[in-house]
Design a protein around this nucleic acid. Structure first.
Length: 854
RNA sequence: GCCGGGGUGGCGGAACUGGCGAUACGCGGCCGGCUUAAACCCGGCUGCCCGAGAGGGCUUGAGGGUUCGAAUCCCUCCCCCGGCACCA
């Protein structure tokens, strides 16, 4: 705050009063301030124990989802960093020590596909992209602690990804299993369930095909209940993100009931959410993948038909099979099972509408109360037995299943359950099953374990050695990282390109020293990004991924910011990792991100931007033409940032005009030396006339901006308030004569600079430096003076029967009598009343009066 | 079908817990000033209808309701966007 600080002369350019052009030269201003920040490492923050660390200072970890570096940053990046930086700056000036780091999610398919096309090593194209991302983020003036920068493809980073993998492996949370998985024929790799959208590969849109393979999994399903329960630990997450994760985890309560095939002596447990309808089961269906099918079919008359059906079903793409509109198909087996509640023998079928992945891969079919079973029964002419009826005796619609969540129904045709409502019937039947040893209460999840291995090159190698004697063996910690070898051909050939690096693959078993082979699959890139927020905290640590004490200081992330597209994948995986690491004692928090903000997508001409449509907005163009401050302020001004918005060039120009107006105001007011007299509350309170009016407006703007910041992310209205202040300053400018007037105008300008700073930091600093002197980022966020906020008189609206008829001026805080007296004095109101007496008068202090007449 | 989020001027959007003329702020449009002129810039006007005017009426997707008072609360319906969907 000393005068030597940074007025614009110090910031490296022309001083006040010299030949500075009377024009808002955004780029010159931005370069000057960026040079200061880089030189002084302004945004670097110390860790506990580090130089300058103050344990008394509250911390704020503000984190934007790390970008995948491909080509150049796009408007989505501009928006997310503009929002993140506004929060970071606001928190800083409110006394927080803010950590805002930066890194790159730099493993992944685009770079690898580029390598396949061009032969260029993915590392080279990736590092080129990183350089261009870094360059633009610097250009935008984002307040990042660059000393913590990381990239997930660097061995110094993925060494610890591997280390964490091994901890999970040791804890039994990483395992290998053979299962039918989803294979993308184009990308030549398996995919996690989360990465298959409508039966298609999330990346390339190719229809995935089922394939039986042995793969690596993380046991995320063990954490299903905690992932659900701990939503309660979150401070503020968008409701819809929580809902999406809840749906994805898909917890459902019900019962397991065991149907027995007496002939063969095989028990078939099924999961059902409707055990109250067990008496309505008229047939039984197995998924085509069901492991007991062979035994059931062997030696039966239609074995060939069943096997043909199964073979066809297994070839069918998942997307097609998942289509509910398709006609139900299946084949009847020459076997029956016994219903555990009534001993009834019911026929068995195989049908592809039953999924092996959900429940037990077998269902009891209750056609009367399940639409799918109903359709199947109709196709195969099977009996439909109603066991639930509306309590009021009405008849359910014919021609479809009677499905309802209502409790106003009654169970019928069900032995001891007759007459009960569903909830009671469920409890009783579960008790009965349990007593008979034929079932129990059960919970089932839609969530599957996380399939993490990929048959691709550009990813983190899985640190496992396969030994013919010892099986899969962990690479010892001191041999990490297992570095990604160079290969000649990046083309995937059904197995990872790593398999061709013979020298690398062939190794000694860490346990028995025998000849062994390295695992050649790499990890899903979501593994890399499931813990990066922890590495930022201690990026130089060579002994551990991060120090527990350091993590205890910074975690959890106070504000996480990113796109909704990660609502399920990344956010759920990162939550899972955090919990698993907490169980290992590595971190002290159960949830990584206390507050989440998801920003809306920017469109152009109402459409998603795409190269093929030719409507892509390149932020660099706008930064070059108008400056980073304009581009950043514009994306925050378009509308509430959690909603999308359409990029309109005229809107950018409007914001630029506003910033230029503020710059000119500051330029005109530029003081030769530091002047803090304008902040003196005694002086401010003693003013009158236009000076007072402008000071009041400035305090109004402070109050409005602060409230909107605290309220959430209403940045558009914060900026609008500063615009109002600047507009008033221009309007009143000519009336502001004398010392008080000049000082009030400088205060208004300084306040506008101060409030716009989170969005336009360079201009904020520049304008502040001109009228006040010193460095704005070291100034606390301003506080509104209540006395200047309050007004002496207020204008009340006077309504008659709810219709506005007049306004009256009364002293602020005037009581009911005083108000009614003022209203009585209004000629206009008397005219409207026309002699009628109000039957009721509502007085809302300082707001309005409503007279009710007949 | 299920679950979220929305529908406010020519456009993007404001309006704290129902209450200071709904439409702040920006864009667009119109008028004026500056200028030889234009751009820039500065100032003003700008929801719709009727009216010369004073003024009046109407207006927050549609229709009902609660209330002295509704964009805001309740019910019914329509439309748009996003997510999930043969999950037993």
């Amino acid at each position: 705050m000393s005068a030597e600080g940074t007025d614009r002369a110090d910031a490296g350019g022309d001083g006040p009063g010299t030949d500075r052009p009377a024009r808002y030269d955004a780029r010159a201003i931005e370069r000057r301030w960026q040079a200061v920040w880089a030189e002084e490492q302004t945004w670097e923050v110390p860790n506990p124990g580090g130089p300058g660390f103050d344990p008394a200072e509250p911390k704020a970890y503000v984190l934007v989802m790390l970008p995948y570096p491909s080509g150049e940053p796009h408007v989505g990046h501009l928006k997310v960093y503009s929002v993140g930086d506004a929060i970071a700056h606001y928190r800083r000036r409110n006394g927080y020590r803010v950590l805002q780091p930066m890194g790159y999610d730099s493993f992944g398919l685009p770079a690898e596909n580029h390598a396949i096309r061009t032969g260029e090593h993915p590392r080279e194209s990736t590092e080129r992209s990183i350089a261009s991302f870094r360059g633009q983020f610097l250009d935008w003036g984002v307040s990042i602690d660059w000393s913590r920068e990381l990239a997930t493809h660097e061995p110094a980073y993925y060494r610890w990804t591997q280390w964490i993998f091994l901890r999970l492996f040791e804890a039994g949370l990483a395992y290998r299993a053979e299962a039918a998985v989803q294979w993308c024929p184009k990308d030549q790799t398996v995919l996690a369930n989360e990465q298959v959208i409508d039966g298609r590969c999330e990346r390339c849109g190719t229809e995935v095909v089922p394939k039986k393979l042995e793969q690596w999994y993380f046991r995320i399903t063990d954490y299903a209940d905690r992932l659900l329960a701990d939503f309660d630990r979150l401070e503020s997450w968008p409701e819809h993100v929580v809902t999406m994760q809840r749906n994805w985890i898909g917890r459902s309560e019900g019962a397991e009931a065991v149907f027995r095939c007496a002939e063969l002596g095989i028990d078939f447990p099924v999961f059902t959410t409707r055990p109250d309808t067990l008496y309505g089961a008229t047939f039984f269906v197995l998924a085509p993948e069901h492991p007991d099918l062979d035994r059931l079919v062997d030696g039966t008359s239609n074995a060939g038909e069943v096997r043909d059906y199964v073979a066809a079903a297994l070839r069918r793409p998942a997307g097609e099979r998942g289509d509910a509109e398709r006609e139900k198909t299946g084949v009847r087996l020459a076997r029956t099972v016994t219903n555990p509640v009534n001993g009834e023998e019911i026929p068995m079928f195989v049908a592809d509408y039953v999924l092996m992945e959900y429940g037990t891969g077998a269902i009891m079919a209750v056609p009367a109360h399940d639409q799918r079973d109903f359709e199947f029964a109709r196709a195969f002419d099977l009996p439909v037995r109603r066991v639930v009826e509306p309590a009021d005796g009405t008849e359910p619609a014919a021609g479809e299943a009677f499905v309802t969540q209502s409790e106003d129904v009654v169970v019928v045709n069900s032995g001891s359950l007759d007459g009960l409502a569903p909830a009671a019937a469920k409890r009783r039947i579960i008790d009965e099953l349990e007593a008979a040893g034929r079932g129990r209460l059960a919970v089932n999840y839609r969530l599957r374990d996380w399939l993490l291995s990929r048959q691709r090159y550009w990813g983190c190698p899985i640190p496992i050695v396969h030994c013919p004697e010892c099986g899969p063996v962990a690479v010892p910690d001191d041999q990490l990282p297992v570095e990604l070898p160079d290969v000649e051909d990046y083309r995937p050939k059904g197995q990872s390109p790593l398999a061709t690096a013979t020298d690398w693959v062939e190794t000694a078993c860490p346990r028995c020293s025998g000849l062994a082979r390295r695992e050649t699959d790499t990890m899903d890139t979501f593994v890399d990004s499931s813990w990066y927020f922890l590495r930022y905290l201690d990026p130089g640590n060579a002994a551990l991924p991060f120090d527990r004490a350091v993590a205890d200081h910074w975690m959890p992330v106070d504000q996480y910011i990113g796109g909704v597209e990660h609502a399920i994948l990344h956010l759920m995986y990162a939550r899972f990792f955090t919990k698993a690491l907490a169980d290992e004692g590595l971190v002290g928090v159960q949830e990584p991100f206390s507050n989440l903000f998801t920003q809306g997508m920017i469109t152009r001409d109402g459409a998603k931007m795409s190269k093929s449509k030719g409507n892509v907005v390149d932020p660099a163009d706008y930064v070059a033409r108008y400056g980073a401050d304009t581009a950043r302020t514009y994306v925050c001004f378009m509308g509430p940032p959690d909603r999308g918005g359409d990029w309109v060039d005229e809107g950018v120009e409007g914001v630029h005009r506003f910033l230029a107006r503020l710059w000119r105001l500051a330029d005109e007011q530029a003081a030769k030396e530091s002047d803090r007299a304008m902040f003196d509350p005694e002086w401010q309170r003693g003013t009158g006339g236009p000076a007072r009016a402008l000071l009041a407006k400035a305090h109004w703007a402070i109050d409005k901006a602060t409230r909107d910041f605290e309220r959430g992310f209403q940045f558009n209205t914060v900026i609008a308030a500063v615009m109002e202040l600047v507009n008033d300053a221009y309007r009143l400018r000519d009336d502001l004569a004398g010392d008080d007037g000049g000082r009030a105008l400088r205060f208004a300008t300084a306040t506008a600079a101060s409030l716009i700073f989170p969005f336009a930091p360079h201009l904020g600093c520049e304008a502040w430096g001109a009228v006040v002197g010193g460095r704005l980022w070291e100034e606390p966020w301003p506080a509104a003076d209540g006395e200047l906020l309050a007004t002496d008189t207020v204008t009340l609206v006077v309504q008659v029967n709810g219709k506005l008829r007049d306004r009256v001026e009364v002293p602020a805080g005037a009581g009911e009598d005083e108000v009614l007296a003022a209203v009585g004095a209004s000629a206009r109101i008397q005219e409207v009343l026309d002699g009628r007496e109000p039957v009721k008068s509502i007085v809302v202090p300082d707001r309005l009066v409503n007279l009710v007449v007949r």
